[in-house]
């Protein structure tokens, strides 16, 4: 995955709570067997409504999604993360995320940032007032900045390190292949196999 250190860009305010992954990428798009082309499916049902925020040209080129609370609830489909990334977003900021969505994001290098709901609303208001507003998301400093204001966010050290370095988990885990083999040798013999 691509490394993430610091990103500055414009943002889209998505003022809806409980945006589930079925809205982010409707199921019909999940039939693809490739990893690309999902940007067309991003919010595809909602994008049919001309007044939907992503259809507003003032937000063209935005790279930060300012979402409502409980973003990415529902299904485990990583396609939701792919769709958001392939559309051009690098960061999603919300007060709360669905656990699986947040986990999937960090595997792909899409940074999920948790900020207090009031702060997210402030950012949304700022962007609505001036869509050219530049927001900086600094993973090194664990900080979101807008003009003179800065808000810190929490992310565990390990995930931060992985994102900063752009490391993929499988390679990291395979360094411990001996530990896995040792564990396997100690498993109960009556545990089921699919054979």
């Amino acid at each position: 995955m691509d490394a993430f250190t610091t990103h500055t860009g414009t943002a889209v305010p998505l003022r809806r709570s409980n945006v589930d992954t079925d809205q982010i990428i409707p199921a019909v798009w999940l039939k693809q067997v490739s990893r690309t082309g999902f940007e067309k499916g991003l919010f595809s049902a909602w994008r049919e409504d001309p007044s939907f925020v992503l259809n507003n040209p003032v937000y063209d080129g935005a790279t930060i999604l300012l979402a409502g609370p409980d973003f990415g609830t529902g299904s485990s489909r990583e396609h939701a993360v792919w769709a958001i990334q392939q559309y051009g977003f690098r960061v999603v900021i919300a007060a709360r995320f669905g656990d699986i969505f947040r986990n999937n994001s960090t595997k792909m290098g899409l940074l999920p940032v948790i900020l207090d709901a009031k702060i997210v609303e402030e950012l949304q208001a700022a962007v609505e007032a001036d869509p050219t507003t530049q927001i900086t998301v600094d993973l090194t400093e664990r900080e979101v900045r807008l003009g003179q204001d800065a808000w810190s966010f929490e992310i565990d050290d390990y995930t931060r390190w992985r994102l900063l370095e752009g490391l993929d988990d499988i390679g990291l885990t395979l360094r411990h292949a001996d530990d896995i083999a040792t564990y396997e040798n100690g498993r109960q013999p009556w545990l089921p196999t699919t054979v």
Binding site: E78, I100, N103, N104, D169, I170, T173, I180
Partner: peptide, 15 residues
């Protein structure tokens, strides 16, 4: 439940 990156991880490492 897990996403596809983790499916790949479990297939490769069983962890």
């Amino acid at each position: 439940g897990i996403g596809t990156s983790e499916v790949e991880h479990v297939l490769a490492t069983q962890t």
